[in-house]
């Protein structure tokens, strides 16, 4: 079987050969855009977002899933939600989260004594947010990390991170603080009760 070749006729019409009608059409199109964009108050057809303009709030344009500078959320009593489980620092591909744990003194959880993110190393992957079991770390600020004069300024500590934070009403650990008491009794048929 031979492969057929489709022949496309390339003959030009007189109109094509004169050039001028097509040129005028083209000029009309571009002129239309020109006048629409110059004479319409505002931006006309221009869709460019002028990032960085003082009178433009980029937060209006970013999608909700945009990953900005980190923040640490706090509980109703104002203390940090983080339980220093190290999930985020473990999963972080850039290895830029450093957490030092301390006792929270409530018989249950730890708390971060210090929580440091080096934003210069961060690759903004968002894994830390995914890994966090208690909605303690978020990247929903829609803020870019601003340039700093020294490297040290780009390393954000607990206070900086919490200053951007807000109260989170998510149930700690996915269940209430009294989860141990409320935990359903294990079904003796299927598992061995360790107690």
């Amino acid at each position: 079987m031979t492969i057929g070749v489709k022949k496309v006729s390339l003959t030009r019409t007189t109109r094509d050969q004169i050039f001028l009608p097509a040129i005028f059409e083209g000029l009309l199109t571009t002129a239309k855009h020109f006048f629409k964009n110059t004479l319409t108050p505002g931006m006309g057809d221009i869709e460019t977002i002028r990032y960085g303009d003082p009178d433009v709030d980029v937060k209006d344009y970013y999608p909700d899933r945009f990953r900005g500078v980190h923040r640490l959320m706090y509980r109703e009593d104002g203390s940090v939600r983080c339980v220093a489980c190290m999930c985020c620092s473990t999963v972080c591909p850039a290895n830029c989260i450093a957490i030092e744990a301390e006792d929270r003194n409530d018989d249950r959880e730890k708390a971060p004594l210090s929580f440091v993110i080096d934003e210069l190393k961060c690759v903004v992957c968002g894994f830390c947010v995914e890994a966090c079991p208690c909605d303690a770390i978020r990247m929903d600020t829609k803020e870019h990390m601003q340039p700093t004069e020294t490297r040290a300024e780009a390393v954000l500590g607990k206070v900086d991170l919490m200053s951007r934070g807000g109260p989170s009403v998510a149930v700690q650990g996915g269940v209430s603080p009294d989860y141990r008491a409320e935990a359903p009794k294990a079904d003796p048929r299927f598992s061995h009760d360790p107690r």
Partner: peptide, 10 residues
């Protein structure tokens, strides 16, 4: 500026 306006740029 004019080329920008014709091409929907700023």
């Amino acid at each position: 500026k004019q080329s920008a306006m014709m091409q929907d740029r700023i």
